[in-house]
């Protein structure tokens, strides 16, 4: 695709801007910032990927994955800012998902052990886990907040923190994975996944593209659920004291 063609796509942005101005939606600023950021970020990533794909060194690859995980953890951990050591817990959950997925994909020889495969797949895995972890933190705090009276009843009957938080944990994990499971159910009907679209545009046969996409979807969903569960079980003890008391300090801080 030529650079001129790329510039022509800016016409779409301009149309959106004009619509926004005309209807006084006040979106111009955000739209402008978004457009510039997308262009700059993706261009930078394009060059980095170009560089990384050329690398044969594992340390650089691992460093790149670590940076992605750090950024994702930082982003997801914002949803649990009232919780102690939440960053490290989110990092562990997301990193565990990545390690798990790579172990399966590389171990079973499903994908080639080259940066060209590992980096984009890791991006998707880490991104999905990030979304699941962010939602989890949000929901877990909401669940505990809204069921605090029931939790206190359970505690006063001699339940452990774990027993008292059980319903909240289950609901929060479920809620955090709903978007993933919904997209499993509607994939192909509502949206064509980006990777598959890319492969088809790039000339791969649709059947081949589908096989890849299924593989990706299953592993993405599975490991995102995994990271949500890991995070749920490592984050809830923060909301209780060692003596099985519900702390109230973390509440209302989201």
């Amino acid at each position: 695709m030529s650079t001129t063609a790329l510039f022509f796509t800016l016409i779409f942005v301009a149309v959106a801007m004009i619509l926004s101005l005309w209807q006084r939606l006040g979106l111009e600023r955000e739209l402008l910032i978004g457009t510039i950021r997308a262009a700059v970020q993706l261009t930078a990533v394009g060059y980095i990927l170009h560089l990384v794909f050329g690398l044969k060194d594992w340390p650089y690859l691992i460093l790149m994955i670590l940076v992605m995980t750090l950024v994702a953890s930082h982003n997801a951990a914002k949803r649990g800012s009232g919780l102690d050591k939440i960053f490290i817990k989110v990092f562990t959950a997301i990193f565990a998902a990545e390690v798990m997925a790579m172990t399966i994909l590389l171990g079973l020889n499903i994908i080639e052990a080259t940066p060209r495969f590992i980096i984009p797949l890791s991006g998707m895995i880490i991104g999905n886990s990030m979304v699941a972890c962010g939602l989890l933190l949000n929901r877990l705090q909401n669940e505990i907040q809204s069921h605090r009276d029931q939790i206190k009843v359970a505690l006063s009957l001699g339940a452990t923190s774990r027993q008292a938080a059980e319903t909240a944990l289950r609901n929060a994990v479920k809620a955090s994975t709903i978007p993933l499971i919904d997209s499993l159910k509607t994939v192909g009907l509502v949206q064509l996944p980006g990777m598959m679209t890319g492969l088809i545009i790039g000339g791969a046969s649709p059947v081949e593209a589908v096989r890849y996409q299924l593989l990706i979807l299953f592993s993405l969903t599975a490991v995102a659920i995994l990271s949500s569960i890991i995070l749920a079980f490592s984050a809830y003890p923060n909301m209780f004291s060692k003596s099985h008391q519900l702390k109230t300090t973390f509440l209302n801080q989201t």
Binding site: S156, L157, G158, A159, T160, H244
Partner: peptide, 9 residues
């Protein structure tokens, strides 16, 4: 604490 809470309802 769990035993305490069982005894003291």
């Amino acid at each position: 604490v769990l035993e305490l809470r069982r005894q003291v309802g």
